[in-house]
């Protein structure tokens, strides 16, 4: 249910760690740091998509607690994907 949101959390902590580490060794603006950050973000996005596919597979009950949990999980994945994309933007520009 909280899988997508967890990926979002991993992403924002990850990009912060990558830029801080880059700042210690060279500069957070360095092209290599940006590429690593970008690759990491793509990884998170792919994980998000995988999570969405996993949540949508199988039985399709419309009512009941399991259907409800899946609905919450899927919307969480969607919001997380928007968050990941949005926070990747600074790296690309």
């Amino acid at each position: 249910m909280t899988g997508g949101l967890l990926i979002w959390a991993v992403h924002f902590i990850g990009v912060y760690l990558i830029s801080s580490a880059a700042d210690v060794w060279s500069s957070s603006e360095a092209a290599s740091a940006r590429w690593i950050g970008l690759a990491f973000s793509m990884g998170c996005l792919l994980a998000d998509i995988a999570m969405a596919v996993w949540l949508s597979r199988g039985r399709r009950e419309v009512f009941g607690p399991e259907a409800w949990e899946r609905r919450v999980g899927l919307t969480g994945v969607l919001v997380a994907a928007i968050g990941v994309l949005w926070q990747t933007a600074p790296m690309a520009f």
Binding site: F12, V15, Y16, S19, S20, D23, S27, S28, E29, A33, R34, G37, G83, W86, Q87, A89, P90, M91
Partner: peptide
């Protein structure tokens, strides 16, 4: 703070 970190936090 480094500019790129500021940008991440602003986006978040």
């Amino acid at each position: 703070m480094p500019q790129i970190s500021i940008n991440y936090f602003s986006a978040a």
